[in-house]
Simulated scan of single mutants.
Amino acid sequence: MTSADRHFSPSEAADLLGVSVKALRLYEEKGFLIPSRSATGWRAYGPEQISRAREIVALRALGLSLAQIGRVLARDEVEMARVLAGHQANLETRIAALMSALSQVGALRSELGAGRLPALSDLADLAPSNLPEPVAFELPWPWGGERFELKRLAKLTFIVGPLFSGKTRLARRLTETLPDAGFLGLERLTDTAAAKARLADDPALAARVAESLRWIVEDGGTESDAVLALLVALEAAAPKILVIDMIEDGLDQPSQEALMAHLRRRGAEAKPVLCLTRSNAILDLAAITTDEAILFCPANHSPPMLVAPFPGAPGYEALASCLASPDVRARTAGVVAYRPDQASQSA
């Protein structure tokens, strides 16, 4: 048997494609990918299945929902036109950003050619970053005032820790310190009128939210006030950075998974999001990308630390122990640490 004829197990195929085994199973459930079976009944992925899976992974990378992928695979002409138009718009945005950067480089080279050395700050401005200056502050209670520094702001940051670890206080301090940041608390679950009023006052926002909601529903999520409140905050022009308290609250598992797929499909220009979570449907450690980061608050109130999503990495096992399925998470919904002499609560 040649390498071209080889059949892969689910874990081997997932490693080859750069996706999780869960993703392969989801593609199978949707009818996009039908693995063959070994003589003992185990799933196997041969050349045809691997080729189809690569196509699906590529379409996901373009930002397509599962429903859109289904229509593209069915050769839906209207859907293909919509996909190409959206991709063209994204490319034009990226080209405009590159042209701006090229103009900056050209101007600096002209200065250098005229015998004027560019300022170091001008050179540093050429580096792509949505956080020009590192953010640093003294950690609030329950820490001991240690200095905390965030050098890079990822497109998506997860803030995780056990109960009473202080992660909500960390999130609020980050909101106070990050430029143009806003905090979306749990009041969003009861004050739905505020989100709906924003939609009524801003037709453009309403259109963006409707498009995002359609994507989430197509991906298996359920339309709800909790989803709507999140999308209004995500799609609004301000704040520029969004910090979300317990992002999974009010969402069932399919909605959590669809929301995460939506957050990951957003373009490079989308606002950075920092979200507190204890749900493994929100923070799937096997699905973390290079555009994402994990901040872990230890139970012993050691300073928060960035944790790499790999078994054996410092803090990984403690981090993983804080995550649970949505069903298990529901048992502790609303449980917070409370300290009467403190002004706010800490999840």
Rank of each mutant, 00 (worst) to 15 (best):
R198E: 12
R198L: 09
A200V: 00
D201L: 15
D201R: 12
D201Q: 13
P203E: 02
P203Q: 00
P203K: 00
L205Q: 00
A206S: 08
A207I: 00
R208F: 00
V209D: 06
A210L: 03
A210K: 04
E211H: 05
E211P: 10
L213I: 01
W215D: 09
I216A: 07
I216R: 07
V217R: 14
E218I: 02
T222S: 14
E223F: 07
D225P: 06
D225V: 01
A226R: 01
A226E: 14
L228F: 01
L228V: 02
A229P: 07
A229R: 06
A229W: 02
A229H: 12
L231D: 12
L231K: 08
V232H: 10
A233C: 10
A233T: 09
E235L: 02
E235R: 03
A236I: 04
A236Q: 07
A237P: 11
A238M: 10
A238F: 12
I241C: 09
I241V: 15
I241N: 02
V243Y: 00
V243M: 03
D245V: 01
M246K: 13
E248G: 03
D249T: 01
D249A: 11
G250D: 13
G250N: 09
L251H: 10
Q253D: 15
P254R: 00
L259F: 14
L259A: 10
A261L: 15
H262S: 15
L263Q: 12
L263F: 13
R265L: 09
G267V: 01
A268E: 14
A270V: 05
A270I: 10
A270M: 06
K271G: 09
K271E: 10
P272M: 03
V273P: 08
C275D: 08
C275L: 15
T277W: 05
L283Q: 05
L283K: 05
D284E: 05
L285Y: 02
A286H: 09
A286F: 01
A287I: 00
I288N: 09
T289R: 13
T290P: 00
T290A: 13
E292P: 05
E292V: 00
A293C: 07
A293P: 01
F296T: 05
C297H: 02
P298K: 03
A299N: 04
N300S: 08
H301V: 01
H301C: 04
P303Y: 06
P303M: 02
P303V: 04
M305P: 05
L306W: 06
L306A: 12
L306V: 13
L306R: 15
V307F: 04
P309Y: 06
F310Y: 09
F310A: 14
F310V: 15
P311N: 02
P311L: 01
P311W: 05
A313N: 10
P314N: 06
G315I: 04
Y316T: 05
E317V: 02
E317F: 01
A318S: 14
A318N: 07
A318Y: 05
L319M: 04
S321Y: 06
S321M: 09
C322P: 14
C322G: 13
C322S: 11
L323I: 04
L323D: 14
L323R: 15
L323Q: 12
